[in-house]
Structure formats: C-alpha cells, structure tokens
Design a binder for these strands. Structure first.
Lengths: 238, 238
DNA sequence: CCTAATAGATTGACGTATCAGTCAGCATAG
DNA sequence: CTATGCTGACTGATACGTCAATCTATTAGG
C-alpha cells in the first residue's frame, strides 16, 4: 500500500544489495572450486543438517535453518542437494556407514584379540552411541513422524544394525561364552537396550555416568546369557 | 476465468447445497445436544485422531484427515477442540490414563493374588502393548519430530510409565523374587524392551506370535533378575 | 397439537502463514 | 572475459484456524 510508484521501478541491483557494515567478519565466503573443496562443503552441510535435524526433528527443521547453521545462503543448499528429502536420505546413509564401520571394527577386534569378551563388545557399542547421541536420534528415533518416504530406509538401517549385532552374538555363542538363545531376538534386545538408554540419557541426563549404565545393561544381559555354571561371573549386586 | 457473471450472483443456499443423491446413507448427522452426546462426539473425534495420528504421524495428519475419519466437517473439529496441538495433547492424556489404569489393575492383581508372579505381571504388560500398537506409536515413538511443544508432555508420560513399572519391580524385590538391582534401571530396561518389541513387531510382522516374543523377553529378563539358586527356571533353549 | 422463534451445533470457503523449491542475477577464480 | 559457485527474493502449494451462514432440536406461543 502507499505510494508504490518508486518501488515498482526498483532495480535488481538495489534488491540484491547487502548490508556491508552489519557483520563484516563472516562475510565473503571462500568458493568451493575443486572437487575436494566441494566435498568439504557437502560435508559441512551434512554436519549442519545433522545438528539441526537431531535438535528440532525433521519436520520442524527448515532449509533456512540448515543454511544458517552452515553459514550458507538458502539457495546454496540446493546447489549441493536436490531436495530436503534427498539431503536427509544422504545424511542417513552417511551415518549408517559410520555405524557399520564401527561395528565391523569391533567384530574384527573380537575375532583377532582372544582376550576380547562379549561384554567388551557390547560395552564398546554402548559407548559409541553414548558418544554420538545425535546419531541415535536420526537413525533410531525419527522414523515414525517421517512418513512413508523414509520408513523403508530407516527400517533397512535398523535391520542392518541388528544383523551386525547378531553376527557378534553368534560369534560368542560359537565360542560357548553365551547360551544358544535365538540370536536374532538376542541381538534385537541388545539393540533395544542400547538405543533406548542412549536416547533416554540424552533426555534426562540424570547423574549416572555412561559407564555405570553400560555396566548395568551388560550385567543384566549377561546374567541371562551366560550358561548355567556353578560360579561364572556371578553378579554380586548392590 | 470465463463468464463469471452468474457465479458472482450465486446465493449462499446454492453454495451450501448438498448432493442428496450421492451417499444418502451417512448424511444428516445427528446433532449432539446433551452433554452426554457431546462427550460421545469428543470421544469419536479422539478415536479418529488416534487412528490417523498413529498411521500417518503428527505432521502428516491434517485436521481434514481427522474430520473425514470421524465423519464430521472440518469446522466441527474446532467446535470441540481449540487447536491441533490441544487435540493431540488431550489424546496423549487420555491414552496415558488408559495405560495407568492398566498398570494399576495389574499391580492390584499382583498384591492380591499370591500366585501372581513377576513373570505374569511383565507378560501382561507386554500383551497390553501388543494389543494396542497405536498407543505405542503415539506415546513412545512420535516424541521427537513433534518438537518442543510435546516433548515435556511425552517425557512426563514415559517417566510415569517407568515409575509404575518400578513399583512392580520393587514389590517383587521385597518378596525376594528378583535380585536387588537398582529398580529404576530395571524398570527402564523392561519398559525399553516392551516398547521396542511392540514397536518392532508392528513394523516387520515376522512370523513370531506375541506370546513367543513375550516368553523370550521374560526369560531373558528373569535369568538376570532371579537370585542365584541351584535350579530355578533354568532355560533349556533350542 | 401444530407452528414460529430461538439457541447452538454444524458446515466449508476464506484469510493467512509457513516453507520447499525455483530462478534470475551477482561475484569471483582462473 | 567466462564459467560457475553462490545469493535471496519470489512462487506455489499446503494446511491451520476463523467465521458468517445454515440447519435442526427444542421451546414458546396460538
């Protein structure tokens, strides 16, 4: 409203002027020319997306939020990713790979070092999740409200995770360290406890340190998994 | 576009005309005049909301979806509820009450009937969730993508649930049926396994019946919770 | 017992805000 | 000078919440 005679004649240059005096410290972004630079920029966007998604959830996160967190403009996100969905899918894939890498390393350790026990393997996995709670939120919590578009992807990731845990379980079953309960159900139970505790502790942050909680979960699991002998790591509680 | 001379003069009666021949069976809704009728209508809306929310998730559900499912018009939802948020909050509260009622009944049973065991209490809770998977989705899964507005409410509900389970755990600890592990952590573990399995089985629907899964979880828990005796429910697996 | 008037339950089109995705233009490295 | 990384205003679509109009059950009046 008002006298819009002038506004109509505004030029593109004027519209695109930037306030050069507002925040001069973070201005003039270095351009990503080489492929290496572009990979870095992609990673920066993914890192920003991980932060924002895990904080606000998928639907409450806007592309503008991610752009702001990554110190980029809105449009630049679309220079590197086709859509919000594509960005989230890629983020899931990247995070899944980190998880897989970790599990595989743990399995390798387990088969290589003879002193490694089932307890150590589970504890290490537990601490891995404790160290990256954003990953827990992204991969194991957001699934539902995300709708059909992501359900299949998240389901596959979870299946893969449980499958990897199952391989560890089978390994120790063959060694006779734990009983021959159905390995898939055992693996799923372990996954459930790890993800729920990781999720939980990042909500409430009670006084308990991660190691104490991990010890508890492992003891709870082991007492049910250890074969019945006279005294084999009998848990003196309290 | 086109000759809109007549359309402009359309009367309100014409705009509100209903297609009397299209679907005559569900037309002419009976009005809710009495307080009892209004309560029924509210409940119908809540039931419709539960169905749609648990199917599509919070953000993907529109008021139009709920209205359609409840056989009401869009505007009528707002006659009974102030906003989508208020509707969801009330739904959470109603579902929480159903959960509380169930747990309290189970506890009463447990203290009254001497033959009731810890196993029976846990198994009953497990089956309760299995029977109402929509509740699991609503109360224990949607929390994240819902954002700050509901996190506190959902957190309170979960805390209450764990607290109730904890009371059951303490009860059986006093009876000496299970060891004196930290009751809150034990309760949280039970809650984690129940909700995760209920959630999981409604995703994959593998061949396993609920009773088999419940048996497995209980056995896994018990082997860790039973005091060390000679032979007390030793699990001959396979 | 029938008809008119009132209350309040019901409807759906509209206003408005949000946000994903587009695009025309700007700016810098080579 | 040119290619292309980068920008942010703009567009279209979606969906919440509002509201004036409509309809029906109940009451008041003849």
């Amino acid at each position: 409203m008002g006298s819009n005679t002038k506004e109509v004649m505004v030029t593109e240059q004027q519209k695109h002027q930037k306030s050069n005096d507002a925040s001069p410290q973070e201005r003039t972004l270095k351009r990503a020319i080489s492929d290496a630079d572009k990979d870095v920029r992609r990673s920066e966007i993914l890192a920003a997306a991980k932060r924002v998604f895990s904080t606000k959830g998928f639907h409450s996160t806007t592309i503008a939020d991610i752009a702001k967190d990554a110190n980029l403009s809105y449009g630049s996100i679309y220079w590197y990713f086709d859509s919000k969905d594509a960005l989230f899918h890629e983020l899931m894939t990247v995070e899944e790979q980190a998880l897989k890498d970790y599990i595989y390393a743990a399995r390798k350790d387990a088969t290589t070092r003879p002193d490694q026990s089932f307890q150590a393997a589970v504890q290490a996995t537990f601490e891995f999740f404790e160290a990256d709670k954003a990953l827990v939120k992204l991969l194991f919590r957001d699934s539902y409200a995300l709708g059909d578009r992501f359900e299949a992807h998240l389901f596959r990731i979870y299946e893969g995770f449980v499958g990897d845990v199952e391989a560890v379980v089978t390994h120790y079953q063959e060694k006779g360290e734990i009983i021959d309960a159905p390995p898939h159900l055992v693996a799923f139970s372990i996954a459930a406890l790890i993800t729920e505790f990781a999720h939980r502790r990042l909500e409430t942050d009670d006084g308990l340190p991660a190691s104490v909680v991990a010890d508890f979960v492992i003891k709870l699991l082991l007492e049910g998994l250890l074969p019945r002998r006279k005294d084999r790591s009998s848990g003196q509680s309290n």
